[in-house]
């Protein structure tokens, strides 16, 4: 397609405006987090005045940030590991043909529609029954499998040519090895997508940790943020410094695994 220079300029212009709208909130939060001005003064200053990083130091000590960070990392690690393993297994099973396949798929679909906020009491009772209250496993269990990722895997597995699988089976590989040696390596992007989505949803979980943790030291970052929000509602920079410190890991993980994530979605969601 011949691209006239004018349309390139227009396209760049439009994209710059879109990016400006997406980035303004970040700039505004970072600016507020590095100044101590009275946030209710009007007019708000566009450029930070007397910037300093001490709000971040305050946040590190007011709320046990290191401990909350550790908890969040452990819970996310368990959730991501669980996701990768369970979703792959479920997806592999769904590539097979069996009697109740249609109803199982329907079941998965309907699970997507159950709003989590409404299932807190029974979910709590079940976790209490399992004796997982106030534990990392208890925190991560509901997040250890996600339906969207199962279908992403299913599409990725079906994209692998059947001849390859038959050849492997001829060589005498058992089912488990078929998955590990052949299917998984070939659908590495789908794994990346699953890792990022699982990380995002487990890292940002807010209501479930609130209910399940009893001791303050077991809380995760979103709870720390909500706690901060309530207690020091009106602090100038400290609350927004905390918000920045909570956002940084999500952005960091995304930027690190961005290429695989996009390719995973390409081969996954749409072809399936």
């Amino acid at each position: 397609m011949r691209t006239k220079p004018l349309s390139i300029v227009l396209r760049h212009g439009a994209l710059v405006i879109v990016c400006f709208i997406m980035l303004v909130p970040f700039y505004w939060v970072i600016k507020t987090s590095i100044t101590n001005e009275n946030i209710y003064a009007y007019p708000p200053r566009l450029l930070p005045e007397a910037p300093h990083l001490f709000n971040y130091v305050d946040v590190w000590y007011f709320i046990p940030f290191a401990r909350y960070l550790l908890n969040s990392v452990i819970v996310s690690a368990i959730a991501v590991a669980g996701n990768v393993v369970f979703n792959a297994m479920a997806a592999y099973a769904l590539t097979k043909h069996f009697v109740g396949k249609q109803s199982v798929m329907l079941l998965f679909l309907s699970c997507m529609l159950v709003p989590f906020q409404a299932t807190i009491i029974p979910a709590y009772l079940i976790t209490a029954k399992l004796g997982l209250l106030n534990t990392y496993l208890g925190l991560a269990l509901p997040l250890m499998s996600t339906i969207v990722c199962i279908f992403i895997y299913k599409a990725a597995f079906e994209a692998v040519p059947q001849s390859l699988i038959d050849a492997a089976r001829v060589d005498g590989l058992k089912e488990r090895q078929v998955i590990l040696r052949i299917l998984m390596p070939l659908s590495k992007p789908a794994v990346a997508t699953n890792v990022i989505l699982a990380f995002i949803w487990s890292w940002n979980a807010f209501l479930w940790p609130l209910i399940i943790t009893r001791e303050p030291i077991m809380q995760t970052l979103p709870l720390g943020l909500a706690r901060f929000l309530s207690y020091l509602e009106d602090t100038t920079g400290a609350l927004y410094a905390f918000a920045v410190m909570v956002l940084a890991p999500s952005i960091f993980v995304f930027l690190m695994a961005q290429k695989e994530f996009i390719r995973g979605l390409t081969s996954g969601a749409t072809k399936g």
């Binding site: 807190i120 009491i121 709590y124 009772l125 209490a128 609130l210 209910i211 009893r214 001791e215 303050p216 909500a226 706690r227 309530s230 207690y231």
Partner: peptide, 22 residues
């Protein structure tokens, strides 16, 4: 054991504990 909850979240936590019998 000392627990501290934010205003809007205290009822949520207390009700759940109540329903669980603890």
């Amino acid at each position: 054991e000392w627990q501290d909850k934010k205003g809007p979240e205290l009822p949520t936590f207390y009700q759940t504990q109540l329903a669980a019998g603890t």
